[in-house]
Simulated assay, not measured.
Amino acid sequence: MTVTMPNIDVSFSQKAASLPERSERGYAILIVKDDTSAMFNYKEYSDITEVDTDKELYTEDNLQYLKDIFTFAPYKACVVKIGNTATISDALKIVIENVKTGWITMADGRTEDFTTLSSWIKSQVANKRTYKAVVYNVTSPDEKHIVNFVNTKITFSDSRGERTGEKYCPSLIGILAKCNITQGCNNFRCTNLSKVSEVDDRNEALGAGKFILINDGADVRIARGINSLTTTNGKSATEDMKEIEVVEAMDLMQDDISTTFKEDYLGGGYKNKYDNQILFISAVNGYFKKLSANGTDVLDEEYENKSDINVEKQREAWIEAGTNEAKDWTDIQVRKNTFKRSLFINANVKILQSMVDLDFAINLA
């Protein structure tokens, strides 16, 4: 067997159709090109007063984008600052060095910047990292960690007035970082806008994985909290995974379970035997129970959210390794015959989603 890095792969297979507040989920990561000051390339802010203190470090436009983010009070705003001649690829290296997850966009990004960001997000997903991005009008990104905003014009409520759509990407990462796992962003009111130029066909746009804003009387609202996923397979990519709040919950569980395994089990003196696997599974199931407790509302408490040994996958591993008698082992024999350094675990969970679609029939006597 080829020697590789330990493989920590927490996957979700949905079998049902369908928050504690986690501050580390609420990071809005803004990439700016700004030569105003070369004193730093990464900085974190917790509130708008800290931004005001540093106002001399940014151009007027970039300072305004930071203020736009804090209009919606995310947990933190992280600024990655690069020079005007640098590239977004340079900035993304700084992101990895400083923050492990969050919503990313680029201020005044061009088409090629957003395309590069989309490709980078996909590469991070392949490496089991849970960064997410807001991009502007990218051609079919088709990825549950990418929100593809497409409105061509937006009108700010302040003196800026009407601007092109990409100017709202910083505000959107503020909104999505604010919502994180605590609430869906469906019908969210964009308080710093007075009007938008709407798409011609709302349903067509949503069906194509496009994130749109709509006019609702005097308000501007998010039509529906969807990402750009359009290609589904019924298992690893489902209809539910088109919803931002579902992916937020999936990423929360992936990060938490993977981190717990790395910190508490990997190299921690736990040999790969049945009893230790059961300890790990018990810990995960306890975690699921907390996510379904009253007031948490990540998982449905009426559903049996449970992880267990993946008997069939473990059996297949033994057979592929040349142990043909594993075909005839009972399930309990498979469970107790752990496979080398690998844990094969699966879980069935039901993620709660916001109330969005109402079917209400009134029958008259």
Rank of each mutant, 00 (worst) to 15 (best):
G109M: 05
G102E: 01
Y75E: 15
F114V: 13
E60T: 01
M106F: 06
V80N: 04
T71I: 11
K76F: 07
I69E: 02
Y65Q: 15
E60F: 01
E97V: 01
K93M: 05
T71Y: 10
N62R: 06
I96E: 13
I96C: 02
K55F: 03
V99C: 08
K76Y: 03
Y58A: 01
I69L: 14
P74T: 07
N62M: 08
F114G: 07
L57G: 06
A91V: 07
L57F: 13
T71L: 07
I96R: 15
C78L: 14
V79F: 00
V95H: 01
K67V: 02
A73T: 12
D68Q: 12
P74W: 09
D61K: 09
T105H: 11
T115D: 06
Y58M: 05
S89R: 12
C78I: 06
Y58R: 00
K100R: 14
S89V: 10
D61G: 13
T101W: 03
V95P: 00
Y65T: 14
K93I: 06
T87I: 07
A91W: 00
N98D: 02
I104W: 08
L57N: 15
K93Y: 06
K100I: 05
I69R: 12
F114L: 11
K93D: 03
D68L: 13
K81P: 04
K81C: 06
K81G: 03
A73N: 08
Y65F: 09
I69F: 07
D108P: 01
L57Q: 15
N62F: 07
D90K: 12
L63Q: 12
L66H: 08
V99F: 12
K93G: 13
Y58Q: 09
E56N: 14
Y75T: 15
R110N: 14
K81E: 11
M106C: 11
N84M: 11
G83N: 13
K55C: 00
Q64N: 14
K100G: 09
F70E: 03
T105E: 12
T115F: 01
I82M: 08
I69G: 04
V80H: 07
E112G: 14
K55V: 00
V99R: 10
S89H: 15
I88A: 03
I88N: 10
L57V: 02
K67L: 05
K67W: 01
I96L: 14
T59W: 07
F114S: 03
E56G: 08
E60H: 08
D68E: 11
L63C: 04
K100D: 09
W103R: 06
G109N: 05
D68F: 05
W103G: 00
I96K: 11
L66F: 08
V99Y: 14
F72P: 05
F114W: 02
I82K: 13
D113R: 01
I88D: 13
K76S: 12
F72S: 11
C78F: 00
T105S: 15
Y58L: 08
T101F: 06
L92W: 00
V79M: 04
I69S: 10
R110T: 10
K67P: 09
I88W: 05
W103Y: 12
R110K: 12
L63D: 15
L66D: 09
T59N: 03
N84A: 14
A73E: 10
D113V: 00
I104F: 10
L63W: 09
A86C: 05
L57H: 10
C78S: 11
V79G: 00
F70K: 01
T111I: 08
T111S: 13
A77D: 00
S89K: 08
D68N: 11
Y75F: 15
V99Q: 09
K76R: 15
A86I: 10
Y58H: 01
